[in-house]
């Protein structure tokens, strides 16, 4: 009989080192700079910056700083389900707001 419960032992045996996180931090700083820069160009750029760079930054924090990269699929699914739910709430709300 195959036993289905996962063993509580750590999934990741090889821990990441300092360097990777410092690199991610540098990227985050650069992206923040880009975001500020874009917002000074025009309103359209500001909105595009908001819609693209912000989720990218958040994604980097989730993926590296919060160790999602090193976790199994369950944690990724949990995060995706949450974001998906919020997105659907948002879309359905705008089915009212946007068609007034």
């Amino acid at each position: 009989m195959s036993v289905s419960i996962e063993h509580p032992a750590e999934a990741h045996t090889e821990h990441p080192g300092y360097a990777i996180f410092i690199k991610v931090w540098l990227v985050l700083l650069v992206l923040t700079g880009c975001l500020v820069g874009m917002s000074h160009v025009s309103q359209t750029y500001a909105v595009w910056g908001l819609l693209t760079l912000t989720p990218l930054k958040a994604g980097l924090v989730f993926y590296f700083f919060m160790h999602l990269k090193y976790e199994g699929p369950l944690f990724k699914v949990v995060v995706l389900v949450t974001l998906g739910t919020l997105l659907i709430f948002f879309a359905l709300l705008f089915s009212d707001v946007a068609f007034h």
């Binding site: 500020v36 500001a46 908001l50 912000t54 989730f62 700083f65």
Partner: peptide
């Protein structure tokens, strides 16, 4: 690790607050 997760989430929320308020102009 868990405390760190909480702190990172606080960071992520700020990542969104910056463009929504300060860069909205």
């Amino acid at each position: 690790e868990n405390s760190g997760l909480y702190w990172h989430l606080v960071d992520v929320i700020w990542i969104f607050l910056l463009p929504l308020f300060y860069l909205a102009a």
